[in-house]
């Protein structure tokens, strides 16, 4: 049975005359991996920030985990995890200190943190590095750790803003294995990316061009509709008409 955990209805964000996100509407189901695609400057990050409560919408409506993005941001915050574009762990803290800090911020009990940390480190093969400062880890490990920290408190939804920027394909593959495992546990994944091969891993993708959603479907259906062999081709057909480039 489908159960929507994110709904957006004509969600719009204006910065002065500039319309960053223009009347976007979509729904994301529970346990789904929802890809939010678009070129740089298409308005992905702005849309995501509105859903996370980081940015106030100009108009339209949206709910996250059943809570309103205008009035119930505090409730939303308790139910989501977030991993930002730029990697966001404390470099001068060790691996386990970072985990303990973020888990503590979400109000987890000390004993629970301890047990789950051991489990997580084991799963990531990071047990020997538990007391290593994060700045000494390779970027790929940092990103896997950042993702694990973002879902450590078992949120209903996790928002990932271009989580795999700058890492090699193998690490990206490993990263996506973590995402699948989280989705299997029932965590809804909302991920922005501009790597089209990653789009193939998603259950459904939406493609944003110049602030609007131009297409929304499963990767397979999109390829069929646009008569393309890969998501890359689909994207190129849609993005060709784009006026904005970098933000």
């Amino acid at each position: 049975m489908r159960e929507a955990v994110i709904t957006a209805n004509k969600l719009t964000k204006k910065f002065g005359d500039f319309i960053a996100t223009n009347e976007v509407s979509f729904e994301v189901d529970k346990g789904e991996i929802f890809g939010f695609l678009g070129a740089n400057g298409a308005g992905k990050t702005t849309a995501m920030r509105m859903l996370c409560g980081l940015s106030m919408p100009s108009s339209g409506s949206a709910t996250v985990a059943g809570f309103d993005v205008y009035k119930q941001t505090e409730k939303i915050k308790q139910n989501i995890g977030y991993m930002s574009q730029k990697f966001s762990l404390y470099e001068d803290l060790t691996v386990s200190e970072n985990i303990r800090f973020y888990a503590g911020i979400y109000g987890m009990a000390r004993q629970a943190i301890k047990e789950k940390t051991a489990q997580l480190l084991n799963q990531l093969n990071l047990t020997p590095e538990a007391n290593t400062l994060v700045k000494a880890l390779p970027l790929g490990w940092k990103q896997k750790l950042a993702f694990s920290v973002a879902i450590f408190h078992e949120p209903k939804i996790v928002f990932l803003d271009e989580p795999t920027g700058g890492v090699d394909p193998i690490t990206r593959r490993e990263f996506w294995n973590l995402i699948y495992r989280a989705a299997e546990r029932g965590i809804t994944i909302f991920v922005t990316t501009h790597y089209m091969d990653e789009a193939e891993y998603c259950n459904r993708v939406s493609i944003m061009v110049d602030g609007k959603i131009e297409a929304l479907d499963t990767p397979r259906n999109l390829k069929k509709t646009f008569n393309a062999t890969s998501m890359d081709e689909v994207f190129l057909q849609l993005a060709r008409g784009a006026k904005r480039s970098d933000d």
Binding site: E74, K77, Y82, M83, S84, S88, Y90, Y102, I105, Y106
Partner: peptide, 13 residues
């Protein structure tokens, strides 16, 4: 600067 502020703002802190 190191972007952790964003994560803290999204958290219930």
């Amino acid at each position: 600067e190191i972007n952790t502020m964003e994560v803290l703002l999204v958290s219930p802190l």
